[in-house]
Amino acid sequence: MVGSNHSSGMKARRAKAAVLAFVLVCGALTTASSTANADFDTGWHAYQKTDFAGAFNAWQPLARQGDARAQFNLGILYDQGKGVARDPAQAIHWWRLAAEQGMTAAEHNLASHFLAGEGGDPDFEEALTWLKRAAGHGLARSQYTLGKIFGYGLGTTRDMKSAVNWMRKAAEQGHKGAQYNLGKIFRDGDGISPNMVAAVYWFRRAANQGHARAQSRLSTRYERGEGVQADNIQALFWALLAADQGEQLAVENVATLRRSMEPADVELAERRAATWKAKPEG
């Protein structure tokens, strides 16, 4: 009994010591992490005030300690030559470290770097590796670019099935460029059954967000009654918006439509266009 009491006392003391040690370690970790957060925020405030040297000094030690956000941002400073001489090799180094920790933005920027080929030749194969990772992690702009690369057949064989698949994922997330491209794919039946109703659906989503070429293509669908009921007022309305953004085909269509329409209808389309506002998704 005594032994057992003694033993249970020991156990209690050990448990207390373990709890104390745990609390101390947690405390130390929390302090370290809150210090890291404070340092990161110091860098962020300096960056926003365009004090890039200040941002560099705050982020560099954190990046060396393995902080993925600091590694990513340090890569941005090197890539843009902010607060430090421009050095793309350093940018890649820090983005690679952040990407290895699963940071999607870093995966995307690595892909962009290899695609851009600034000062050299684009490396589409290396870009594809990183694009697939970022796209797989759900980043819409990576999914869109991956769709484009499969559609062009750059660094890979042309694969419209994969192009449509990635373009659709980006479009569903609200990427207007992807919505416009998906519209074109459905219009032309490129690697998919042509479907003018689906084309109009995607052109419209991009057009509502202010995508000039989508507005111009939507105008044409209304003018020809393809995938939608023919309607010249709608055709002129969308053509006016696209023309205002410098879309050359739309400038020509505006002139043609104006000549063929009643003045009251032209005025109605113009009034609607003058008060229209883009509605970005998300």
């Binding site: 941002n73 995307h108 920027n109 962009s112 851009a116 600034e118 589409f124 980043l139």
Partner: peptide, 14 residues
Amino acid sequence: LAALRARTDKMPAS
């Protein structure tokens, strides 16, 4: 076109 797009499509600082 792909190279030009990539040059202006990087993710900004986090």
